[in-house]
Write a protein that binds this DNA or RNA. Sequence first.
RNA 1: GCCGAUGUGGCUCAGUGGCAGAGCAAUUGAUUCGUAAUCAAUAGGUCGGCGGUUCGAAUCCGCCCAUCGGCUCCA
Length: 636
Amino acid sequence: MVSVKLKDGSERQFPEGTTLLQATESISKKLAKESLAARFNGSLTDLNRPLHEDGVLELLGFEEQSGQDVYRHSSSHIMAQAVKRLWPDTQLAIGPAIDKGFYYDFDSTHTFTPEDFAAIEAEMNNIIKADYPIIRKEMPREEAIRFFKERGEDYKVELIEDLPEDALISLYQQGEFVDLCAGPHVPSTGKIKAIKLMSLAGAYWRGSEANAMLQRIYATSFPKKAQLDDYLYKLEEAKKRDHRKLGRELGLFVIVDEGPGFPLFLPKGMIIRNELENFWRQEHALAGYQEIRTPIILSEELWHRSGHWDHYKENMYFTKIDEGDYAVKPMSCPGGLLAYKQSLHSYKELPLRMGEMGLVHRHELSGVLHGLMRVRAFTQDDAHIFMLPEQIIDEIKGVINLIDRFYGLFGFPYHVELSTKPEKSMGSDEVWEVATNALEQALQEKGMSYKINPGDGAFYGPKIDFHLRDSLDRTWQCGTIQLDFQMPERFDLTYIGEDGERHRPVMIHRVIYGSIERFIGIITEHFAGAFPAWLSPVQVRILPITDRHHDYAVQVLSRLKAAGLRAEADLRSEKTGYKIREGQLQKIPYLLVVGDKEIEAGSVSVRHRKDGDLGSQGVEEFIQAIKQEIEEKVIR
RNA sequence: GCCGAUGUGGCUCAGUGGCAGAGCAAUUGAUUCGUAAUCAAUAGGUCGGCGGUUCGAAUCCGCCCAUCGGCUCCA
């Protein structure tokens, strides 16, 4: 007999060889039905595993992340089995669970199309209905290689060959289908209920451009049909918030065929942009920054000096002026360094914080362009801080505070990643270590938790990246703080120290919005186009009920404008319901309905886009309320 | 850049070899209306571009461009 201790503290005896599933069934049929896998003595395992030793058992359902991963991973095997049945010459690559589903990469002479989805799903449902037990098998490395060679699964052979010499290889079998897999898996194919194939994509074998392009099928699965439907509904909702769609509908910005990757901002989009920049300038002045502007085109020689030529050339645009070679800037730092060098600096001036709304151009691969999120020309809210080595930690902490203030204002939660020295970089390992440690120390002193991204730093220094999470739970990299010992060296920056000698300053590159364009894309989706009043292109629209109310509407309008509000009046002879509908669709924060009653009382009838009809208010009363909402940058 | 899909009026889309369509938007007229769509009329497209097949191409073929979903890369 073996003894199994459960999570609730109870302990039970089972005959040796009883599987975890059988054991669970004897405890509770319901629990057994809901369990997908288990953690036994701390390690993930199949429910089909027989008991040979005492231990602590934790059952994993779909609610647990690891249970969900197992569920999706088993789903991917079912999809692979279905594909193999339909197109037997298909070779299997890998098929992991991902965030909201799973995928499988195939190499097949058949080119998959969305029309194949129904057939694959039908075959998957056959496999599910057959309820094949999913059986784990183990074999030595050599035998496993032979096994997959015989079956013509070259990718699997390559995977095994990369495993250690003495590795014990595990395989999982369901019906006629066998796959190399570490597991664990659900006990049988019948556990999987609601499946849906989502999309097709090309994907390089092992993620490298040098390798073959495989065909990837993305899919998802849930234990209940209702959960799948809910997921699909949310996806539809997310599509409605797509900034590309909202940008066009609300007249904010557009990307035309004539300018791929070069967004065009319309008047209403410019209002949002200008408000963001105004706020930025105000906050940066408070935080002790000065502002500069450096040229978009600078001599090619400068880019040799900065290291961009060696490390960033493929992303740059070049041009010729008269006989000289010039480059369009992909970053603002070299210009910032030139600005620093225009005068002699004393240690007393440092830290010197110089901000720049820098328009940069980068040649991005055509396939990566995506609305405002990924463009070829964008404005970085850049700043370069020149400082003494002993000021590093405080300056980094200052930037972190500033970033926190900005993101908090929009209601964005965020997480932080620390990126270390990449392969293609300048400077010695020692300098990189000093810089990386400084960033780490600042984060620790701020008590911030962070993830480390090895090899992801800029070519001149390590960085802290701020990834913000939007209302749809997606994350976007925006802010970054980069510590740089290289550029000051390359540009021979100096300051005069207390000792009267020249010394080398240290430099921080940092952005908060990241790129104004991307940030506008993110907030458009985050607010679903319903921007807080301070950012709304139109803050108030007045809706007179009939033509005889026009005079009053125009009077109210001029009072709103005099109060500095962005207001307009809808003087078309349409029904009130129609005007309201249009105002709502334009996501205008406040609609003011005015008719006989309002003229009589000298009031406006206030309708908020989210809260609906708020009843009647005096004009002055309304003006004060909305001005306060704007001033405090309330999200409503 | 690579894989796949898509491209028809301002927007959303129908039209699979035989006279380019609908709804919304726009314009004009009527309507004077109280919290999410009043009615009618009018106008608007060399069907992404170039070439080919055909008596005839939005439709079939080729190349190019752009977009979408991914991969790789990134603010």
